[in-house]
Amino acid sequence: MITLAESHWPLSDVDTVPALAGFVESSFSPLAAEVARRCLGSATPKPGPATAVIIVSSTGDLATARATARAVDTRGRLGPLLFFQAVPNAVAGYIAAKWNLQGPVVCLSPAEPDLADGFAVADLLFRDGDANQALIISVEQAQAEGERDTARAVLVKGAV
């Protein structure tokens, strides 16, 4: 596996994440889109269409899940945008469409933050010929006060 480009969030204590149109209440999808933008923006050459998008997160979109649960428990109104963003596939689809990445879209949830499953799945996709590069994105949302979200994106290709 060869790393072609990589990016992180945050890059500093004052790093910010731009809002992402159509996504509300949660940092998960904006963070995924932002580290993808930073990673692919720095990649030379740009990835070809046979690139997979693999999102790896031990927390999943915790903030969207909490907003949903809160609305259900209080009989509050649920907007349709929460439905559209409720699975990590959604932002993976946004990234795939924006960068014309026509490889598989895969989402994984390890027990603890770790990209290893993402690399393992990318390796199988390469061997099977379903992709020749993969954008592997990790988003971990803060679970408690005082914690901070983290995100990372890595563009890889097979070693052969």
């Binding site: 031990s58 927390t59 999943g60 699975v87 990590p88 596939n89 879209v105 895969v106 989402c107 994984l108 949830s109 390890p110 027990a111 603890e112 499953d117 393992a120 799945v121």
Partner: peptide
Amino acid sequence: FAGRLFPLARTYTSA
């Protein structure tokens, strides 16, 4: 949390 139900599994959440 999806990945903690069976921690030794590879857990897929791709809808």
